[in-house]
């Protein structure tokens, strides 16, 4: 790992100004994506700005019909939050499925979303629920936030402060774990809120998380796993690697979507 300097701001304001004035700086949240990448010298920031001392970035609260989660809230704390479990058990299950207990003790929702790993779980929940990603500058709809492999709409001097999820009990996540890494080989998040249905897929896309309009249309008619029977997605444009072929991933998308729908119906 290359040498660097670090700062530990205690307010968002300080963090924003440090980020603006330091050359080649990176934010550090839980460090469970960034530190491994720095060890591999795939990232070599000159300055790290640690967000862990900024209290206003942590916590879970109900705000009207939304559930608002601070960017620095750890996976463990979202998974165990009685507020999240009560309002949206389908969402609480997402961080509970990430990595292992030690990773969940450190990793954060903001870090996961900013990183936008194509096999990560939170991006599917954000897209599947139509979440809003809130930064120090603006509010970004999930549909516009995830722009490609490890790419997001974030500008270099932008910090995620919160993520706001519209509440619905009819939502669930099903994940086919890669047996070694624990990441999603394919994960599908399904949600129904009023007349709106969203289906978001992680792990399968060659350019990251995506929605499946044909599944959404079918589920709008009747929100049940049966509605998806016989439907599939094309392997074209899906990821294909040593872990799984595009065809296998396409198959898993259908299976995971049906299972997630069954769960969402049960929660709702």
């Amino acid at each position: 790992m290359y040498a660097f300097d670090f700062h530990r701001p205690t307010t968002l304001r300080q963090a924003v100004s440090l980020l603006a004035k330091s050359e080649d700086a990176k934010l550090l949240a839980g460090g469970h994506s960034l530190i491994p990448v720095m060890k591999l010298r795939l990232a070599s920031p000159r300055t790290l700005i640690d967000l862990s001392q900024i209290q206003e970035l942590t916590g879970v609260e109900l705000k009207g019909r939304s559930l608002v989660i601070g960017a620095m809230t750890r996976h463990r704390d979202v998974a165990n939050s009685p507020i999240v479990q009560e309002a949206m058990p389908g969402l609480a299950a997402v961080p509970a499925s990430i990595g292992d207990p030690h990773v969940r003790n450190r990793g954060t929702i903001g870090g996961s979303i900013a990183n936008n790993d194509p096999n990560a779980d939170y991006p599917a929940a954000c897209l599947g629920l139509g979440a809003t990603i809130i930064t120090n500058k603006r509010k970004i709809p999930a549909d516009e936030f995830f722009t490609g492999l490890f790419e997001t709409a974030l500008e270099p001097d932008e910090i995620i402060t919160k993520v706001s999820f519209p509440i619905t009990r009819k939502c669930a996540y099903e994940k086919f774990k890669h047996p070694a890494s624990g990441f999603a080989l394919v994960g599908v998040f399904v949600a129904k809120r009023g007349s709106e249905v969203r289906v978001a897929v992680t792990g399968a896309g060659a350019s990251g998380v995506f929605r499946v309009p044909s599944f959404e249309e079918a589920l709008k008619k009747r929100f049940a796993p049966k509605s998806l029977e016989g439907l599939s997605i094309s392997p074209e444009g899906l990821a294909s690697d040593i872990h799984a072929s595009a065809e296998y991933r396409a198959h898993l998308v259908g299976v995971m979507a049906r299972r997630a729908t069954a769960k969402a119906v049960a929660y709702g």
Binding site: F6, R8, I35, D50, S52
Partner: peptide, 15 residues
Amino acid sequence: GVAMKSCTTFAWQVE
């Protein structure tokens, strides 16, 4: 009291 992978934590993070 919380378990962590100390290979994925900088010493200064636990100041």
